[in-house]
């Protein structure tokens, strides 16, 4: 009877030890995975590439002084031919995605401000 209980206890102990060994291995694998992930992410750290949700009109991403300068030149033009040519160039640049901010919105805003003067 006693030997039977001893054997059962030993079996139970072996089972429990195995469970913990497997658990330890899993913990180590998960840790190594996260350390590897953190070092990979660390290597891609860049300032200037922000998610859209993180940027606002006041951040660097929300401003394009080059577009604003060009649009300011556009509104001060008197020749209709020059205006049409510039319009076409703006549209081409917009299609190519050269502007950091919305071309149509900025154009509207600048035209509105200029006409207010």
């Amino acid at each position: 009877m006693k030997t039977q209980i001893k054997k059962k206890n030993q079996r139970g102990q072996v089972g429990e030890t195995l469970t913990w060994i497997v658990a330890t291995i899993i913990i180590l694998i998960v840790l190594i995975f996260f350390i590897f992930g953190a070092s990979l992410l660390g290597g891609t750290k860049k300032v200037g590439v922000f998610r859209e949700a993180l940027t606002s009109g006041e951040t660097l991403e929300g401003n394009d002084i080059f577009l604003k300068k060009s649009l300011f030149t556009y509104v001060t033009l008197t020749s209709e031919t020059e205006k049409t040519l510039l319009d076409k160039r703006f549209e081409r640049l917009d299609e190519e995605g050269k502007f950091d901010i919305s071309y149509t919105d900025t154009r509207k805003e600048i035209l509105l401000n200029y006409n207010k003067r």
Binding site: L31, I35, A38, G42, G43, K46, V47, G48
Partner: peptide, 22 residues
């Protein structure tokens, strides 16, 4: 082990410098 792992993770991420050249 877990604490050491967290320290390694933080060090791996924040130890790398930011690329501000653009």
């Amino acid at each position: 082990i877990v604490a050491a792992g967290i320290v390694l993770m933080v060090n791996a991420y924040y130890g790398n410098s930011y690329d501000v050249r653009e």
